[in-house]
Structures are given as C-alpha cells and as structure tokens.
C-alpha cells in the first residue's frame, strides 16, 4: 500500500525547514466515505501530511540514522475544509532537535491561504533504545519517502522548475 500523503517537496533547507504540496483528487478512496456526497479531506490525513513533511526534514537533519516516530501532536487546529481540487501546502520548521527527539511547528495552507497549524514532536528511535517489538531495519524511511526527496534534489540541481 502507498501510505504517502504529500505529492512533492517544493522547498527543502536541510536542518531548518521544508515545504511540500498535496493535490487533493476526487479519485482518492477515502473521500468516497468521508463523506458520501460531501468529500472532505480528513483532518487526520492533513496531520499525516504535515508529519511526513516534517518527519523527512527531521530524519534528513540527522542523516536518516534513526527512525523518526511521530510521538505527540502538540497542536492541530484547522479553520477550513479541504476538498477535491484544492492544493494543500505544508510548511514545516524545526524548532528543537537533539539526540532524543525533535519539535516542529507547521502551517497548512489551502490554495495559498493559511488554513491551519500543526505542531509535532518526533522521537528518535535507534538500535540502542528500540522497543523489542519494532523491526531492526529502518522501517520509517522507505524508498517511497526517500524518492520524494531525491526527486526534489534532482529537479533543483538540474534547474528544472519545481511543481509549484
């Protein structure tokens, strides 16, 4: 299954900030049930989009040595709906990062206008502090996430315009 809730990065400043966009389409399965006749992107998936944007930013800041786990949603507030046809933009900033964890703040915008805030805490999970039930390999940063960052970097290095 593809569990990926951002389409592409549009900005990436290592260790500091990252921005990604997500275009909402009517063909997404979850919109058929949420809600019938009134498709709205669930707030939980908007949070996930921010978590993926910020999570990759945090992972990259420490060279993807650890698994980066979403540990706490400090704040999630939205004052608008996002529906098919809208473009969401996630702007994430690292507030604090150390060997244990990272704190990020984030703004969600819809078609260019801010519509919410999502602040998160991530835990760094490595071999030394890993609970036994978690796998040994890096299970967070799979190819589908690494490809997103690689695509952004390839595009920017070759001078190709970004998706924005």
């Amino acid at each position: 299954m593809r569990w990926i809730w951002i389409d592409s990065f549009v900005e990436f400043t290592a260790g500091e900030r990252a921005s990604a966009v997500k275009n909402i389409t009517r063909s997404e399965d979850h919109l058929h049930d949420h809600f019938p006749g009134f498709p709205v992107m669930p707030a939980t998936l908007i949070i996930e989009g921010m978590a993926q944007t910020a999570g990759i930013l945090v992972g990259e800041a420490r060279s993807f040595r650890e698994n980066v786990i979403l540990a706490k949603i400090r704040r999630a507030s939205f004052d608008d709906f996002a529906v098919p046809g809208d473009q969401l933009r996630y702007d994430a900033v690292i507030e604090t990062i150390d060997e244990q964890a990272a704190v990020t703040t984030g703004v969600v915008s819809k078609n260019g206008a801010p519509m919410g805030k999502v602040d998160l805490i991530f835990s760094h999970v490595n071999q030394a502090n890993k609970p036994p039930e978690l796998p040994d390999h890096n299970f967070v940063f799979t190819d589908q996430f690494m490809d997103l960052l690689a695509t952004f970097r390839n595009n920017n290095m070759s001078g190709t315009p970004s998706d924005e």
Binding site: A71, K72, E95, T96, E99, Q100, A101, I121
Partner: peptide
C-alpha cells in the same frame, strides 16, 4: 511518558535554559 519530554522542551524555551537528559 512523551509529555515529560514535551515539558522539558517547553521549559527550555520558556526560561532560556538547557536541561540535560
């Protein structure tokens, strides 16, 4: 448990101090 880490980060910011693990 995660709240304890959150509290540490917020205290560091609120008082401009460093709290070692």
């Amino acid at each position: 448990s995660i709240d304890f880490l959150d509290i540490v980060f917020r205290l560091e910011k609120a008082f401009d101090i460093k709290i070692p693990k």
